[in-house]
């Protein structure tokens, strides 16, 4: 995948994720429309591909206003990754030469990879994650289970330790998938399934949309570092 193709695919997926969250906020408190109607309009322009560089810069200004409005991210990690992707896209457009453009795209690719590895590591150093106690606490008293049925279904389940081990090992092993394009595609499919599972259990729908937007850059990085540069998308 070429850098241009990865950038364009990322723009399209980011625009879809931003439109999705804008629609949610339009039905929030009345003042939120001031921030999210422009976000929806700019995202539509980015989706179509009109003045992509200027639209990315305008989206960044809009992001600063939204951060000021909520005094931080509204939806935790999903907002953080969205802003990170946006900043990296701005840098790819502002880069003075192709080499700097690739550095910005590589940084974008690195962060979703790190998001899996560092999450796995931060769980692996806590014994409660290996025993299943941490997940038991998540289902027992955390705010996240999306319904009473989900909370009850997994409370005290013998599956919890197995689920914990699976998540930790997958997250820690994720960077190894960069060694092979085929393995990476399988790993990204599993990662997307992991985010969908988190949506089904905890209602984290925005994480699915935004994390997938980071995948084209990972595919590009793998091609750039290891692969033969198979053209997937002609940009």
């Amino acid at each position: 995948m070429s850098a241009e193709a990865a950038i364009r695919l990322t723009e399209i997926l980011l625009a879809i994720a931003f439109i999705q969250k804008s629609v949610e906020h339009v039905f929030g408190l009345p003042d939120e429309r001031l921030y999210f109607l422009p976000l929806a309009a700019l995202s539509l322009l980015l989706l179509v591909g009109i003045e992509r560089d200027l639209v990315c810069y305008a989206l960044l200004v809009n992001a600063l206003f939204i951060l000021h409005r909520f005094q931080g991210p509204y939806n935790g990690g999903s907002d953080l990754l969205g802003y990170l992707i946006l900043v990296c896209l701005c840098l790819t457009h502002a880069a003075p030469d192709p080499r700097w453009r690739e550095y910005a795209l590589a940084y974008l690719a690195l962060q979703p990879i790190l998001s899996y590895f560092k999450s796995g590591w931060s769980k692996a150093v806590h014994r409660d994650w290996w025993t299943g106690q941490a997940l038991l606490d998540v289902f027992d008293f955390s705010v996240y289970p999306v319904s009473d049925a989900i909370r009850t279904r997994f409370k005290g389940s013998g599956l919890l330790a197995a689920m914990s081990w699976t998540v930790i090992l997958f997250e820690l092993a994720f960077p190894l998938a960069l060694l092979s394009r085929d393995v990476l595609i399988v790993a990204l499919a599993l990662a997307a399934a992991f985010h969908i599972a988190n949506f089904l259990l905890f209602g984290f729908n925005r994480f699915v949309w935004i994390w997938v937007a980071g995948y084209p850059a990972i595919l590009w990085l793998q091609d750039r570092l290891v692969g033969a540069g198979i053209p997937v998308f002609s940009g």
Partner: peptide, 15 residues
């Protein structure tokens, strides 16, 4: 407020 997005810690659900 944007800085944590540029250098995220990515520690989800650690404790």
């Amino acid at each position: 407020l944007l800085l944590p997005a540029l250098f995220p810690s990515w520690r989800f659900f650690d404790v």
